[in-house]
Amino acid sequence: MRVSIDHQTTRKGFVLKTTYHEVSLQVAFTHEEKQIIRQRKLESAKLLDRRPADAKVDARDEKFELRIEDLMDGKIDRFLCATPSQSKIYEENLLDVLARLKLWLDDNAETGTRTVVEF
Rank of each mutant, 00 (worst) to 15 (best):
31 H>L: 08
53 A>N: 10
31 H>K: 11
92 E>D: 11
82 A>Q: 14
119 F>C: 13
65 E>Q: 13
119 F>L: 15
114 R>H: 13
104 W>T: 05
106 D>A: 13
65 E>S: 09
4 S>V: 14
79 F>H: 08
78 R>L: 09
71 L>A: 00
106 D>Q: 14
60 R>K: 14
89 I>N: 11
32 E>P: 07
24 S>G: 06
66 L>Q: 04
25 L>G: 02
102 K>T: 14
111 T>R: 13
107 D>K: 09
73 D>N: 00
90 Y>H: 07
33 E>C: 00
106 D>C: 03
73 D>C: 06
29 F>N: 03
7 H>P: 02
103 L>Y: 01
84 P>I: 00
75 K>L: 05
97 V>Y: 04
99 A>D: 05
58 D>I: 13
85 S>Y: 04
33 E>I: 04
44 S>C: 09
38 R>V: 06
90 Y>L: 02
83 T>Y: 05
60 R>E: 15
93 N>P: 05
6 D>W: 07
1 M>C: 08
42 L>Y: 04
115 T>F: 03
24 S>D: 01
77 D>A: 15
46 K>A: 13
67 R>W: 07
94 L>C: 13
60 R>A: 13
4 S>L: 14
114 R>N: 11
64 F>M: 04
60 R>D: 15
110 E>I: 01
112 G>D: 15
60 R>Q: 15
6 D>G: 01
87 S>Q: 05
19 T>H: 05
94 L>Q: 10
3 V>I: 09
44 S>W: 02
41 K>L: 06
109 A>N: 10
30 T>G: 12
16 L>H: 05
74 G>F: 09
1 M>D: 06
109 A>I: 00
15 V>G: 12
78 R>E: 08
86 Q>K: 14
69 E>M: 05
109 A>Q: 12
69 E>N: 12
82 A>V: 13
48 L>P: 04
36 I>T: 06
28 A>T: 12
14 F>D: 04
30 T>C: 07
15 V>T: 11
112 G>M: 12
103 L>D: 04
42 L>S: 07
91 E>N: 04
107 D>N: 12
81 C>R: 05
